[in-house]
Simulated assay, not measured.
Amino acid sequence: MTRTETIVKMVLDRWDASIKNCGTLLNNLDDETLQKEIAPGKNRGIYLLGHLIAVHDDLLMLLGMGEKLYPQLQEPFLKHADKEITQIPSVVELRAFWANQCEVLKHKFSSLVLEAWFEKHTAVSTQEFVIEPHRNKLNIIITRTSHLQYHLGQLQLLN
């Protein structure tokens, strides 16, 4: 295995493990528990689930892999704080969105050729990328894995 293959594998393995850990936790939390706040006055579990789906939906566009699967989640889960919008999808719907999105991302990631992980993502210009080549697709996975881990820690408080 080349060094490049090793680096990509390490990053994607961490992403996959984080997704799996989150899925396991979500399966252990019932719908009622996800309606609870992480701590008094803080986000509810359902909000964090919707937020993660909305953030991961952006991956498709950032990585040039297609359109968002759930654009309707942008408004309630990225543009507003928890409880600012009363009409949000149910826990059941969000669980289904999460499962589908994880499968779609897994398929898209596995179909990307090795060298493509080091290409620029769509939020960086060609000129910026020449100066900052670390602003690549693989780096997006690193930052989104950290983001997922942060919220996974919060969700653990419901367990």
Rank of each mutant, 00 (worst) to 15 (best):
L49N: 07
Q101W: 05
L60E: 05
P89H: 07
A96S: 15
H51M: 06
L63D: 03
E75I: 07
N100I: 06
S111W: 12
A81Y: 15
A99F: 13
F97Y: 13
N100K: 15
M61H: 07
I88A: 01
G50A: 03
A81C: 08
F97S: 07
W98L: 08
P71E: 11
C102W: 11
D82G: 01
I85M: 13
D82M: 06
S90R: 05
V91I: 08
I85F: 07
P76A: 04
G66A: 01
Q72P: 05
P71G: 11
L60R: 10
L60G: 05
A81E: 14
V55R: 07
F97I: 08
F109T: 06
A96F: 06
W98H: 08
V92Y: 08
Q87M: 04
V104E: 09
I53H: 03
M61A: 12
D58K: 09
K68R: 12
L59E: 04
L62Q: 12
S110Q: 13
K68F: 08
D82N: 09
A81P: 03
F109A: 10
I88K: 01
H80C: 07
M65D: 11
F77D: 00
L48H: 01
E67N: 14
G50Y: 02
D57N: 11
L112E: 02
H51V: 06
V92K: 15
L63N: 02
Q101N: 14
P76L: 01
F77R: 00
E84K: 15
E93M: 04
F109C: 10
F109E: 14
G66T: 13
Y70T: 07
K83H: 11
S90W: 07
I53G: 02
A54Y: 02
P76D: 11
L60N: 04
K83M: 05
H56I: 02
L52R: 00
G50S: 05
H56A: 00
S90I: 14
V91T: 10
S110T: 12
D58W: 09
F77M: 00
L52P: 09
L63H: 08
L52Y: 09
F97Q: 06
R95H: 13
